[in-house]
Design a protein around this nucleic acid. Structure first.
Length: 772
DNA sequence: TACCAGAGGAG
DNA sequence: AAATCCTCTGGTA
C-alpha cells in the first residue's frame, strides 16, 4: 500500500531532485528521483536540423531529442529541449522562441513536479482511505476586542485539535480549572508550539481546516513570527508557506498536505451561507453549537468560569466538526486527485476549468499529443468579449397546468460532443469533404468522421468508465465499497459535465469557439425537433429549457393513456437519435405553475413541491418571503385553494406588523463579488459592508456572503441595510418587508392567475382577495 | 419612467 | 479564470 501525498523538487548541486512524499504500508517515506530532467518542446520552422544548429549558442541545454508528436490532429516534428534546471526554463524558452528556425515553444509552462508525475505515470492519493491516513483538524480562537483581530496586536487564545486517532484537545493558557480535554500551557508561544509538536508526535498525514488558507494559518504564522519561530509543520521540517493562488491564498505544508475544506464546500454544496455551522447542518442535519464571536474577548477577559468553559467546548466542537466534514468530503477530493493526476493540495483548490485541463494535459502525454499553449491575456479577453449563442429556452405557457410529463435528454452536451466528434482538430477537416462523410452541424461548420478528436475521445472514456463504475456499484453488496464506487462515479460525472464549458472557456489550452457554438447549436436543434414532434403528436409544450420539455395533453383525461402516449412520443424521438443520445422520462406532475422562463413550480403525485428560480430558491431573499411563497404554492398546487393562499399572505403581513418577526426570518444574504472600490452602484449589501468596515474594522474579501437586515433607521433601502450582528431584534422596516419582500414574492404567482398588482395591494374601491 | 449594474439562479 | 440565458432589484438620471 503506497499513497503519494505530495511532491516537490529541490535543487542540489545544480540538479533538480524530485521528492515524492509517500505513506508506504503505514510508514512515511520520501522517495527521491535524480534522473528526471526538465524539458520543453520547440516546433521547428523549416528544417529541424537548422533549429538544432541555432541551439548551439543557447546555454544550459543538456540535450535535444527529435520527436514526432500530434498537434491539433496532425503529426508534426518537434524538438524536445532538455535543460539543466527547472529554473532555467523561463529564460531558455525566451531565447529559443527568438531563434530563426523556431516556430514556437510548447509545454514550457507545465510545472516541473507536475511534469514528472505525468511522465512517470504516478497517481496521487492512490489507495488513500480513512484507514491508512492520519487526519488532523485544527481551528483557532483569536482575541478580538474591537471587531476584526489584527495579527500584530491580538493573540490567539485557543487552538483546538481533533484527529482520526481519536485525540481531542484544546490548548490555551488561562490558568483556571478546565475540562479534561483542555491543556493549559504557559503562554501563547508555548500553545502554538504544542500544536506543531502534536502534529508531529501523532504522525499526521493530512491537515484539514475550515478557512485555514485565509485565516487560521496566516494568523498562526504571523503570531509565531512575532515570537521569532516558524511553524515547522512540513514532514521534512520545512515551514508552512503562504502562497498566492490566482485570487486566493493557499497555506502549503510540505509532505503533509493541508486541505482547506472551504473551497470544496463552496463547490459541492449549494446553500445560502458557508459557515462551518451551515456545512455541518447541510451534511449531518444537526445544529452545531455556535457562539457570538463578538463576545469572545469579554469571556476571555472575564471571570465567568461557566462562560469560559462554554468557549472551550465551542472551540473543540469546531475542530471535531471540521474533522467530520473532512471525512465526508475527502473521498471525492482523493478521487479527483487520482483522475487529474494533481496532488491533493493543488486539486482541492482547483477550479473546474483547471481540473479538466489537468486531465487533458495528463491524457495528452499518454497519447503523444503536444499540449497547446495557454492563450495570452489579450486573446483571452478578446474571447470573453465575444460570447456565442447558447441554449434555447421555451417561453412558458403562463399559469397553472394539470397532468404534466417531464422529459429530458440524458447528458445532452457530453453526448453531442461524443456523437458528433466535436473538437479543435476535427472542425472543417480536409478528409471528409462530402456532406454524407462528415457531421454537419447547424452552425455551418462540420466535424470529421474519420479521425477521433482528442476531447471527444477523453470524454468518452470518462463516460464509459462512469457507466462501468455505476454498474459495479449496483452489484456491490458491501455498503462501504458501494459508497466508494459512488464517489468515483461522482468524480467522473463532475469532469464529464465540465467539458462543454471548457470548450468555451477563454483561458483554455484546447479552447474551441467553433466547437462550443456547434455543441450549443446541436442542442438547440435537438430540443426544437423534440418540441415539434411533441406538438405533432398532439401535446402542448408548456415549458422547456436547454434539454428538457414539460408537456401536457389537455384532451386526454385518462392518466394511464396519457402516460402511454407520452412514452410513445419518447420512443419516436429516440428512434431518430444517435446511439449515445437519449430522451428520458423524468417525472409526472399532476399540477404545476409556470411564471416566466426559469421560474416555475411543479408538484408530484406524493405532494412533493419542486421550485425552480423563484424567490424561495434564492439566498438574497428573506426567510419570511420565502416561507410565505412556499406556503402559497402549496395552497395553490396541493389544496387548489386561492382563498387559503390569500389568508397565508394576510397572516404574514399581520405578523410583520406586530414587529415580532425574528431577525433570522428577515436576514438577506448577498455575496460581495468584487473589491470594495470596484463598485459603480453600491447596493444594500455593499453599503451594509461599508458600515461594518467603518465601525468594526471588518474586512470583506471578494466572495464573502453578507447577511444583512433592512432596519428602521435611514433614508434609502441601502441606507437602512446593516449587517445582522449589529441589529437588535425588532429593529426592522416593516414596510420594506411587506412591500419589497412578501408581496412581490407572492404577487407574481397570483398575477399569473389573473390577479392584478393593484388588486393584490388592495387598491381601488372594489374589495378584493387581497385587502390588506 | 427608462436604463444600468449587480446578483443569482437554470440547465 | 467552465459556458449562456434569464429575471429581478435598487439606484440614478
Amino acid at each position: 500500500m503506497k499513497t503519494l501525498l505530495d511532491a516537490d523538487y529541490v535543487t542540489r548541486d545544480n540538479k533538480a531532485v524530485i521528492r515524492l512524499f509517500y505513506k508506504t504500508d503505514g510508514v512515511r517515506t520520501i522517495e527521491e528521483v535524480t534522473d528526471f530532467d526538465p524539458y520543453f518542446y520547440a516546433v521547428p520552422e523549416g528544417d529541424i536540423d537548422d533549429l538544432i544548429k541555432d541551439l548551439k549558442n543557447v546555454p544550459h541545454v543538456v540535450r535535444t531529442v527529435k520527436k514526432k508528436m500530434i498537434y491539433i490532429g496532425k503529426e508534426i516534428d518537434v524538438l524536445q529541449i532538455v535543460v539543466q534546471e527547472p529554473g532555467n526554463v523561463p529564460e531558455i524558452r525566451g531565447q529559443v522562441r527568438e531563434l530563426p528556425h523556431c516556430g514556437g515553444v510548447k509545454e514550457a509552462s507545465i510545472p516541473f513536479t507536475e511534469r514528472y508525475i505525468i511522465d512517470s505515470g504516478r497517481i496521487p492519493m492512490q489507495d488513500a482511505d480513512f484507514a491508512n491516513l492520519r487526519i488532523a483538524a485544527v481551528d483557532t480562537e483569536v482575541y478580538n476586542p474591537h471587531g476584526m483581530p489584527e495579527a500584530d496586536k491580538n493573540p490567539i487564545i485557543m487552538i483546538s485539535y481533533a484527529d482520526s486517532l481519536g485525540l481531542k484537545k484544546v490548548w490555551s493558557y488561562r490558568h483556571t480549572t478546565v475540562p479534561d480535554y483542555v491543556e493549559v500551557l504557559k503562554d501563547e508561544k508555548e500553545m502554538i508550539k504544542k500544536f506543531v509538536e502534536t502534529i508531529k508526535a501523532q504522525e499526521i498525514d493530512l491537515i484539514v481546516s475550515y478557512n485555514g488558507d485565509n485565516f487560521d494559518f496566516p494568523y498562526l504564522k504571523d503570531r509565531a513570527a512575532k515570537y521569532k519561530f516558524e511553524l515547522e509543520l512540513g514532514i521534512d521540517g520545512s515551514t508552512i508557506k503562504m502562497e498566492r493562488r490566482g485570487m486566493n491564498n493557499g497555506a502549503r505544508v510540505k509532505g503533509r498536505p493541508h486541505v482547506d475544506l472551504y473551497p470544496p464546500c463552496r463547490q459541492v454544496f449549494n446553500i445560502s451561507r458557508y459557515t462551518l455551522e451551515d456545512i455541518y447542518k447541510e451534511l449531518f442535519g444537526i445544529d452545531k453549537k455556535d457562539i457570538e464571536v463578538e463576545h469572545l474577548a469579554s469571556v476571555w477577559d472575564g471571570k465567568d468560569q461557566v462562560k469560559l468553559n462554554e468557549l472551550y467546548e465551542y472551540s473543540l466542537s469546531d475542530a471535531e466538526a471540521t474533522l467530520r466534514i473532512a471525512i465526508a468530503l475527502l473521498p471525492l477530493q482523493y478521487e479527483l486527485s487520482r483522475i487529474t493526476g494533481q496532488p491533493i493540495y493543488e486539486c482541492s483548490r482547483s477550479t473546474s476549468g483547471q481540473r479538466v485541463e489537468d486531465l487533458l494535459v495528463k491524457t495528452a502525454h499518454e497519447k503523444n499529443i503536444l499540449v497547446p499553449n495557454r492563450p495570452s491575456d489579450r486573446i483571452a479577453e478578446e474571447r470573453t468579449r465575444n460570447p456565442y449563442e447558447g441554449a434555447y429556452v421555451v417561453e412558458p405557457e403562463k399559469g397553472i397546468h394539470d397532468n404534466i410529463a417531464l422529459f429530458d435528454f440524458r447528458s445532452l452536451y457530453p453526448s453531442i460532443i461524443i456523437s458528433h466528434n466535436i473538437d479543435q482538430a476535427t472542425v472543417d477537416c480536409k478528409c471528409c469533404p462530402g456532406k454524407e462523410e462528415h457531421h454537419q452541424s447547424p452552425t455551418g461548420h462540420f466535424f470529421c468522421k474519420k479521425q477521433r478528436g482528442f476531447l471527444p475521445d477523453t470524454l468518452e472514456i470518462l463516460v464509459k468508465r462512469r457507466m462501468e463504475v455505476k454498474k459495479e456499484a449496483k452489484a456491490e453488496s458491501d455498503p462501504e465499497k458501494k459508497k466508494l464506487l459512488d464517489v468515483k462515479q461522482q468524480a467522473l460525472k463532475i469532469l464529464a459535465n465540465s467539458m462543454y464549458g471548457y470548450f468555451g472557456f477563454a483561458r483554455a489550452r484546447w479552447y474551441s469557439r467553433e466547437g462550443a457554438e456547434a455543441i450549443a447549436a446541436y442542442g438547440r436543434e435537438y430540443i426544437h425537433k423534440t418540441i415539434e414532434e411533441a406538438k405533432h403528436q398532439g401535446f402542448k409544450v408548456v415549458y422547456g429549457d436547454t434539454d428538457s420539455v414539460y408537456i401536457t395533453k389537455p384532451s386526454e383525461t385518462d392518466q394511464k393513456k396519457l402516460m402511454e402516449d407520452a412514452k410513445a412520443f419518447a420512443k419516436t424521438i429516440n428512434s431518430q437519435l444517435p446511439e449515445a443520445m437519449e430522451l428520458e422520462f423524468q417525472g409526472f406532475y399532476p399540477r404545476g405553475i409556470f411564471i416566466t422562463k426559469k421560474r416555475y413550480a411543479v408538484m408530484d403525485e406524493k405532494g412533493n413541491l419542486t421550485v425552480k428560480g423563484l424567490e424561495t430558491k434564492r439566498r438574497d431573499w428573506s426567510e419570511i418571503a420565502k416561507k410565505t411563497q412556499t406556503d402559497v404554492l402549496n395552497a395553490l398546487l396541493q389544496d387548489k385553494d386561492p382563498q387559503k393562499a390569500a389568508d397565508i399572505v394576510k397572516e404574514a403581513v399581520k405578523k410583520i406588523k406586530t414587529g415580532n418577526v425574528p431577525l433570522s426570518d428577515l436576514s438577506i444574504n448577498t455575496q460581495i463579488t468584487r473589491g470594495m472600490g470596484e463598485y459603480v452602484n453600491e447596493g444594500p449589501h455593499v453599503q451594509a459592508a461599508k458600515k461594518a468596515m467603518k465601525e468594526h474594522g471588518y474586512e470583506y474579501k471578494q466572495g464573502t456572503i453578507m447577511t444583512y437586515v433592512i432596519t428602521k433607521k435611514g433614508t434609502s433601502i441601502s441606507d437602512k441595510a446593516r449587517i445582522m450582528e449589529d441589529v437588535v431584534e425588532g429593529d426592522y422596516d416593516q414596510e420594506y418587508y411587506i412591500d419589497n419582500q412578501v408581496i412581490p414574492a407572492v404577487a407574481r404567482i397570483l398575477e399569473s392567475l389573473g390577479y392584478s398588482e393593484d388588486e393584490l395591494k388592495g387598491k381601488g374601491k372594489q374589495k378584493t382577495l387581497f385587502d390588506f
